[in-house]
Simulated assay, not measured.
Amino acid sequence: MVDTDTTSPRTRYRTQVRTEIKEHAWEQIATAGASALSLNAIAKQMGMSGPALYRYFASRDELITELIRDAYRSLADTFRAASEPGPDHAALAHALRGWALDDPQRYFLIYGTPVPGYHAPDDITAIASEIMTTLLDACAALPADGPATPFDAHLEGHRQWAAGHPAPPAILHRALTFWTRLHGVLSLELAGHFTGMGFDAALLFTAEVDDLGQPPARGRDGSAGISV
């Protein structure tokens, strides 16, 4: 019989052990990456047998799922807190950077190279959609865009990722631009690619955020131009 009383000693002990397992998992990920995660190695570190540890996480994928779920929930909570005063793309951007710098391995687990053979369950997709919905709300509050682009027209029929958000294609386009540009800067910064280049990565990030807050320039053919 499963003990559903969250205050019982058995439940508290189980929660404590699961938390310790996840802490060791993060240490492994920091050292060798998520693809090298080993439950048997964690069991050895904790002085447990492999079968004993499998009572807490039935497989490596179940443990990875829990880590990814925790990471997405943490970011969703961060976005929710940043949005409490109202939709603000700059507040979200800087909250994202702060969250990423606070724990780069957590960031790379969900936005880095996918773990080979791993497929996330639907509930994780739902949390990721919540994050994107918050971003779409913030982008919808920005100044109106100019003429539609070919990509805007494409998004009209390819908006499943927006999880039913009613934003028009131009806002979908802006949200994707926000997401790809800022993750590009963050990924390069966290991977150390700016080291030795001599500039302030925080100022580069802020410049990108400021630029994303402006209506994009449009070319004669309706394509997005380059803001200068």
Rank of each mutant, 00 (worst) to 15 (best):
G117D: 11
T6Q: 05
T134I: 12
L63F: 12
L37T: 03
T180G: 07
A162C: 14
Q16H: 06
E20M: 11
T6S: 08
A90T: 13
W179E: 15
Y54F: 12
L39V: 11
T195R: 13
R10S: 14
R60K: 15
A170C: 12
G157V: 02
E84K: 06
T206C: 05
R55C: 12
H158K: 00
H154Q: 05
R218S: 15
M48P: 05
G146P: 07
D210N: 10
P216F: 01
G33D: 14
P150H: 00
A120N: 04
I64F: 08
A32H: 09
M197N: 05
V2K: 03
P166S: 10
A207C: 04
A95K: 06
L67A: 05
P216V: 02
A144E: 15
A162G: 14
G157T: 10
H193M: 13
Y107T: 13
A25F: 06
G98D: 13
L203Y: 00
Q214L: 12
L204I: 07
T4D: 14
R60I: 12
R80G: 02
R14V: 12
L212F: 06
T15N: 07
V2L: 13
A148T: 12
L182Y: 05
A43K: 02
A170N: 08
L188R: 04
G225I: 05
K44D: 12
I29Y: 07
R73N: 14
T149A: 15
V228R: 10
A201T: 12
A52H: 10
A91D: 14
A81F: 05
H119D: 10
D200A: 13
T177A: 15
I226Q: 11
G146K: 01
S83F: 04
I64Y: 06
A91E: 13
G219M: 05
A82R: 00
A58E: 15
W99L: 07
G164F: 11
P9M: 03
P147T: 04
L182H: 05
D122H: 10
A95E: 13
R73W: 11
F57E: 09
S74M: 02
V2F: 07
A128M: 12
S74W: 04
D5I: 01
T133N: 10
H89T: 14
P143N: 04
E156W: 00
G112S: 06
G196T: 06
K44W: 07
S59Q: 08
Q16M: 11
H193G: 01
F194C: 07
M132K: 07
A207W: 00
S74L: 02
P114K: 03
